[in-house]
Design a protein around this nucleic acid. Structure first.
Lengths: 158, 158
DNA sequence: GGAGATCTACTCGGATAGGTCCTGTCCGAGTGGGCGGGG
DNA sequence: CCCCGCCCACTCGGACAGGACCTATCCGAGTAGATCTCC
């Protein structure tokens, strides 16, 4: 799993607390990570339509919709790609005892098992929204946490 | 996810139908895959204790226990490693607004969400055994399928 | 004919190159705001 | 004083190297069976 997923999720949580666009560089120094690489992750979020990028002097990134409507799965798929982690290479059709093509209408048992597990994983990620994460943050570190971050983002320099 | 997982699972299913040791090279030509690389996967299974390797002229690999007691998760962890796919780098403790160490007793919200999803994934894989896969194979391609494979494995040459 | 030692051939196991994707970085295109000039 | 045009600085976006992990491969250590010899 790509490590940039973590960065993207934290950025989404942070973006929950602001309505003004936040530049990628500012998010990077907030998290103390590579600005250029974080920019790449945010571009992925932008391509997926989760955030809206505004250019110009006061530009940056803003969430396109309410945090309740953004699931963790959305972010993960945007950064890591929507494709499944397990790819079936159809081994059953190869070799001297290959299964006949008319027997292969349904996916093989191995693929079914892996697909079911990935479906459970996706369901779990889909059931958690960015708003839920933000709520957990407030309950973990206190109500003023996100407000403080929002104020720091708006301030001039660190 | 490592592609070798698929090979290992199919090999385990095949090994369900035999009691004699099967060489890695024979499993490789049955599946029409690279013998050397398949050997590496089987070595991983051996290290994990899922299969027993016997050397010598009639050597090969055999399952160490009943297929009902081998879960798909066991195979996946043996090949891909037991570590979780998502690794939390503790971003919250970095940057100018880093969370205080005494606030970080519990894992952060992002890590909790990802860990929960991976737990669901693992549970799904744990609930499926290699015996279940073999049963699905018989119901998919007919009762004689595994018997035919077993006979082919015992035959001299292809 | 039977038993023993040897010998061979076959097996696994780990150490070794190559390829592909993730990680990290850079610079150019585009755009909104700020400033100066004019009415 | 207000409006317009220009300029600039700041932003994103995609194209470019470096590194790590997965993929693929090879050869050596070890062992079980088969063979040959001797009794």
């Amino acid at each position: 799993m790509s490590g940039g997923v973590e960065w993207a999720l934290h950025c989404c949580v942070v973006l929950t607390s602001v309505r003004e666009p936040v530049p990628a560089a500012r998010l990077a120094q907030l998290h103390d990570v590579s600005p250029s690489y974080l920019a790449k992750q945010l571009q992925a979020l932008s391509r997926a339509g989760l955030v809206r990028s505004v250019q110009g002097k006061a530009g940056g990134y803003v969430l396109t919709r309410s945090p309740e409507l953004i699931s963790v799965l959305d972010v993960v798929e945007a950064v890591d790609g929507p494709g499944p982690a397990f790819v079936c290479t159809e081994i059953r059709r190869r070799g001297p005892l290959a299964a006949s093509p008319e027997s292969c209408t349904a996916p093989c048992a191995v693929k079914r098992a892996m697909a079911g597990a990935e479906a459970a994983w996706r369901d779990a990620l889909r059931s958690v929204s960015v708003a839920d994460l933000a709520r957990d943050v407030t309950s973990d570190y206190g109500p003023g946490t996100l407000a403080g971050i929002s104020a720091w983002l708006g301030a001039a320099e660190a």
